[in-house]
Design a protein around this nucleic acid. Structure first.
Lengths: 255, 255
DNA sequence: ATATAAGGTGTAATTTCTACACTAAGTATG
DNA sequence: CATACTTAGTGTAGAAATTACACCTTATAT
């Protein structure tokens, strides 16, 4: 009996998945289901938002959730993250970083599912259309982080971890531009910081510090179409930004 | 034929693993094998070391590797990390933090295996005996990070990531004590920093800074059994350390 | 022309960081 | 017991970064 089962198990593997594991006998091998969930931050209407989907599948059908799906056998997890985000929201070519892996036994009601969280901060101009490409999601929608709905699974915990992460990150790397349009004012930039850190910053000190980084390039232009006095527009200088970033990295690598 | 295979697959699941996944039909579910690898830092003979095992199983039999094994279905990954470290090295009750998840397709020669890296910094006094409890490992041994052997799988990359992580970490949190005995001298502490950061630090500035944190308690005692002038011993003040750490956390949580 | 709302600017006090070199104290040796 | 040796232990001045703080300017709307 047992032999028959083992035999069919192997046949199944060969048929369904060439890349399936053939692990040494003697090892207690358990296979698990593996997903990726994405926390995508955007800045819209002066607020920090994240991208949620409305699920179209059980469990948690009709709930809001982070965009997340299963990882396939023939794709690395970084690549999988990009595919998954695209399939559920229509957003492509988004570079995400790994956040944390959530592997509590009961985090998924239907069985053992381990998930890797990814996060990114993106620019919302060019108004990318949100439309799920598969039908695991009914729709995708930006929600302000200040008033998130209840989320499926442990997604609230994943979101909170990602918020902690970007708070830390903007404190030692000036990456807040990623949330703004190409051209932005210093006040807009300050608002991004304030909404991530959730506290007010001093205007003069903020400007002094940002300009001192030396990665902002003042454009000749002013804001257009705004009531009251228009502010100067800046963009960030990729060359100098790269240099600063390298310094940051070299601090980490330090030989 | 296919029906028979599916049937036996279910039978196998029921027999071998009660906790197996029962996931909704319609989803393209691929199961993967899941492991944890641990990077354990220690400080011995004035050097930063990590704990390696000599593998007793294919693939990479007889190679040096990070202690790592499969995660079981009924254990969360944090718990699994502790179990795995114990089984391969005999070290128990070690609190580890998650490092990163490595999920490249071909990182394991026998199939798709995703691994979660964990790391810890531990105190080597009380001379914990290293003896593998299972026979997946022949032995466990401390290796200086300055001259590591070639490691199995992508374990060298995992190690490098962990080194980056602790470098960052000691730069904003004074956690280097974890590597030292209960009572230590400031010079010993400085050596720990120097070997992690891999650069010389200024003695006076280092002492000033450490004492300013206010988490070191000067014991009345001096070093014993040392040639030449004995240095003052310190231990770290858990209460004040906890306070500082809370402040650190509250910076992260910030409401 | 006037009111309104945001843009934009400087300084002083404090704290933190960096660079730098000599004396003190205990052990080992002859 | 005198001397050599080795590590312990200490302070200061200049530079850089951080903080707190308030008013005038300028474009638009009425």
């Amino acid at each position: 009996m047992i032999i028959v089962i083992i035999f069919f198990t192997f046949v199944k593997r060969i048929i369904f998945n060439q890349n399936q594991n053939i692990l040494q006998p003697g090892l207690p091998v358990f296979e698990s289901v593996f997903t990726i969930d994405c926390v995508i931050f955007g800045f819209q209407e002066g607020e920090l938002k994240i991208l949620l989907i409305e699920r179209n599948e059980d469990p948690y059908k009709d709930w809001w959730a982070l965009p997340g799906l299963f990882v396939e056998h023939n794709e690395g997890i970084d690549v999988a993250a990009e595919r998954i985000l695209y399939e559920l929201t229509g957003l492509g070519d988004i570079y995400m970083e790994q956040l944390y892996t959530f592997g509590e036994v009961n985090r998924h009601p239907d069985g053992r599912v381990i998930t890797v969280g990814y996060y990114a901060m993106i620019r919302l101009t060019g108004h990318k259309e949100l439309k799920p490409v598969t039908n695991y999601a009914k729709k995708a929608f930006w929600h302000p982080v200040s008033e998130l709905p209840k989320l499926a699974f442990d997604h609230t915990a994943i979101f909170e971890k990602s918020l902690q992460k970007i708070r830390r990150k903007i404190s030692y790397q000036p990456i807040a531009f990623e949330l703004l349009p190409e051209k932005f004012t210093l006040t807009q930039l300050q608002h991004v910081y304030e909404s991530i850190l959730n506290k007010k910053l001093d205007k003069r000190n903020f400007r002094k510090k940002m300009l001192n980084y030396g990665i902002l390039k003042e454009l000749g232009e002013k804001q257009r179409g705004v009531s009251y006095r228009a502010a100067t527009l800046y963009k960030f200088d990729r060359r100098k930004y790269a240099k600063l970033f390298q310094k940051e990295l070299s601090f980490m690598k330090e030989d």
